[in-house]
């Protein structure tokens, strides 16, 4: 075998390895999805969505869980959206060259790497105890809002960065102030990108389990919450609860709950990707 053939052989060997590595990842994904659908699909029914939790697996439903998830998602968005987008605007539009902004920047990138369970400890001590909010939806939502803030900030900045400076300069040339320029020119142009980030961050919040357990979400809640001071559970915690029981029937419930959770997650991520593609296509500068 000459040198040339050796090179080719190595090259092809690497290609084969790489393709198997990629397929391995996708194969695991497929096995995961298929096994969960096989386990849980038969359990899905109207009553699964409307039943309260129960000690009997076949009578237990996810009503308190999905209402809790909905509450958490809305209240989290209520806090995280305005603050996250505002922080993104500040860092990208106002703070390009100042010390405070670069300090904030280090902080944000650091926070993005803090384990979610640590946010749970922050929420437990600060919101639940020091602020006296108790083990409520409000405490849980504020905790998750802090958790997803870095995601919203980073994607807002990316979206703003994509708006060319010529747009800003044209606006200034017409006599607009910096905020007028941002409000009427930059934000509308960046809205698609910002929305993408917001939806992705909320989808992350929906799947979070650990910080809410630490904040004090319950594994058993007899009633659906009616305001944000109520105690609550969420879908992932209900799944965790069922998955931790030894009885086979509860594992089936867990699988059915997972199908619901995955459908929500994939719908949100799909919407985000669709928005991003449409936004990128529409804007040609």
């Amino acid at each position: 075998m000459n040198n040339e053939q050796k090179k080719n052989l190595k090259n092809n060997l690497f290609k084969a390895m790489a393709i198997s590595a990629t397929l391995f990842g996708l194969f695991i994904l497929a096995v995961l999805l298929i096994s969960i659908v096989i386990d849980g699909f038969g359990r899905l029914s109207m009553s699964f969505f409307t039943d309260l939790p129960s000690r009997k697996a076949d009578q237990a439903g996810i009503y308190t869980a999905w209402t809790g998830t909905l509450w958490i998602m809305i209240v989290t968005a209520l806090f995280a959206l305005p603050v996250g987008i505002a922080a993104g605007i500040y860092l990208q539009e106002y703070g390009r060259k100042n010390k405070f902004a670069s300090f904030v920047d280090i902080n944000i990138s650091n926070l993005a790497g803090v384990p979610s369970i640590i946010y749970g400890l922050l929420g437990l001590e600060f919101f639940v105890r020091w602020c006296g909010l108790g083990q409520s939806i409000l405490s849980g939502s504020l905790t998750l809002a802090l958790l997803i803030l870095p995601i919203i900030i980073v994607s807002t900045r990316e979206a703003l960065k994509a708006v060319p400076d010529t747009i800003r300069e044209a606006s200034y040339a017409l006599g607009a102030s910096q905020w007028q320029t941002i409000q009427h020119q930059v934000l509308p142009a960046a809205s698609g990108g910002i929305m993408t980030g917001v939806i992705l961050s909320l989808s992350r919040a929906v799947g979070e389990t650990a910080p809410l357990i630490v904040v004090g979400a319950l594994t058993y809640v007899p009633f659906a919450p009616s305001n944000w001071n109520d105690s609550f559970t969420v879908l992932p915690i209900q799944i965790f609860n069922w998955a931790s029981r030894p009885q086979q029937d509860f594992l089936v419930n867990a699988a059915a709950g997972i199908i619901v959770l995955l459908v929500i997650t994939f719908l949100m991520n799909g919407t985000a990707i669709y928005l991003r593609n449409r936004w990128q296509k529409k804007i040609k500068w």
């Binding site: 990629t22 990842g25 996708l26 695991i28 994904l29 995961l32 096994s35 969960i36 989808s203 929906v206 799947g207 979070e208 389990t209 650990a210 992932p236 799944i239 965790f240 998955a243 594992l251 867990a254 699988a255 997972i258 959770l261 995955l262 997650t265 994939f266 991520n269």
Partner: peptide, 15 residues
Amino acid sequence: LEVLASIPTVVYGFF
């Protein structure tokens, strides 16, 4: 592949 990173971790635990 990025779908792998978007799946909630409680699902991986069950898996």
